[in-house]
Design a protein around this nucleic acid. Structure first.
Lengths: 137, 137
DNA sequence: ATATGTGCAAATCCTTTGCATAGAA
DNA sequence: TTCTATGCAAAGGATTTGCACATAT
């Protein structure tokens, strides 16, 4: 546990994030294993563990982690923000019936982007969401 | 104008949408030419034209159109819902600095999906957002 | 008549913000 | 001290909802 905490602390510092008590609690919960979380889930899991972190700090922290590259904010749900602790290149598959979200390895999908981007721009990322539904009987 | 309205009315009916006065106004504004709109934009353009449609009806109508396949709801902006009146297969490119959203023809991007979808599911769609930023100088 | 659609305002949900307090350097 | 982070409650913005009224079949 101490080793884990040291490791997490190091990751925060490597990303320029001061390792406060609250941030360490959230990081321990969210950064591993790789997973998809919402702010509300983080809040609920913290209080389930008896760790008291304010809602404002949860939002601040998730946004900070995303800005510093510890998390990736996903655009898959119009109703709320999802954060992905797998920051390696990959895509997502979502069940439209359940909202369930699973990773798709980037090498499972071959993408050949447009041959040219607009003048004066460079690629900043690509997001792919494959939506599936229960197969009609 | 009468021809247009007849055409739009026919499209609504073909999608199982009863062509009420408000829905025709919104459809005339939104369905062509192909474009990306938010509820707020529709509301603003309606009042700019002196057409009075309530906010609730605008939201109801856009959601109804999306449910019936007259519009596609996009997942590109965590802050508000965008609707795309181009329902043909295509993808999007978004400038992260400005939020500007442009279409990418589906044949400009080659995608080879995962060879197998999960048991009992079928494809419901795929959304691709290529994000670009101003090139570093 | 009976179904459905509309409008208004209030309610709801997610997220951010203002500000006073707590904590670390 | 001085700077930053935290917590709380309130504010904010987008969207939905409840319900009375209007409309169309």
């Amino acid at each position: 546990m101490a080793a884990d905490e040291e490791c997490i602390r190091a990751r925060l510092e490597a990303h320029g994030v001061a390792p406060t008590a609250q941030r360490l609690k959230i990081a321990a919960l969210v950064l591993e294993p790789a997973q998809h979380v919402t702010a509300e889930q983080v809040l609920a899991r913290l209080s389930a563990r008896g760790e008291r972190v304010s809602k404002a700090t949860v939002y601040n922290t998730l946004n900070l982690f995303a800005a510093r590259g510890l998390l990736r904010e996903l655009c898959v749900d119009p109703a709320r923000a999802w954060f992905d602790s797998n920051t390696a290149p990959h895509f997502h598959m979502q069940h439209v019936d359940t909202g369930e979200l699973v990773d798709v390895a980037s090498d499972a999908v071959a993408v050949t982007g447009p041959s040219q981007l607009p003048e004066g721009t460079e690629a900043a990322g690509i997001e792919i969401v494959i939506r599936v539904r229960r197969k009609a009987p």
